[in-house]
Design a protein around this nucleic acid. Structure first.
Lengths: 112, 112
DNA sequence: CAAGTATATACGTATTTGCTCATTCACTAT
DNA sequence: ATAGTGAATGAGCAAATACGTATATACTTG
């Protein structure tokens, strides 16, 4: 997007949707929980502290966005991260936030 | 987020907000328009094809999120990209989308 | 000071979306 | 076949938000 020809309207919408998928705290918690390996819905429900219905909905959203993959094993469904760029994305955002937080801290130190 | 200790609830919310700021097509258009240098509101309104009021609102959102900076010069206000990680973020998303699009294309080629 | 221009904001509306409760679906085991 | 368990979905409600219209603010110039 930056070093490329400007995106057309449709591509812009797709990129926006992608960001929107990552714009919900519960979905970020799910992704975070999956960084160390696949887990089933019951485990994810316990780890994130949501209701089963809600977790299941968010998982469907993440599947539709190709962020996660699923694997069925008997009664259980195991989810795992499908898109390796997700971790980089989150790190980029976290890094940028750390910088702006430390900037704010510096301002406070300076008496602002 | 990936190679770090899991984020606490407050940090998760902040990250989610950050993604949410990038989750609107019009805001992405504004960011894209600013990759090649600062522009004032009138220029941005023309480039993105929105109403002045709407553009102004989105610019305030981007300022609040520290994505953009502003500079006043007489009657005009010039906006520019403040956070250099934005370009990387957009490139990452675009790259990941390209991959999944080409995967889909491959599936179609394979007769799916 | 009055008129004009560039930008910001207030308000109302429509749409989206996240959540819960209840139910259904898929699968296993007795 | 029936009961039981894990996961997905339907319905309805509440909150968030993007948009347009109209108005306000900030600044410049005559």
């Amino acid at each position: 997007m930056s070093r490329r020809i400007p995106l057309n309207d449709q591509s812009i919408e797709i990129v926006a949707r992608r960001f929107a998928v990552l714009a919900e705290p519960m979905r970020l918690r799910l992704i975070q929980s999956l960084f160390d390996g696949e887990k089933n819905v019951t485990e994810l429900t316990a780890l994130t502290g949501g209701t089963q219905a809600n977790i299941s909905r968010h998982l469907q959203t993440l599947i539709a966005a190709h962020v996660l993959d699923r694997r069925k094993e008997g009664l259980q469904v195991f989810y795992r991260i499908a898109d390796p760029s997700i971790a980089k994305l989150c790190d980029l955002v976290c890094g940028s936030l750390e910088k702006s937080l430390s900037r704010q801290a510096a301002h406070f130190d300076a008496g602002r």
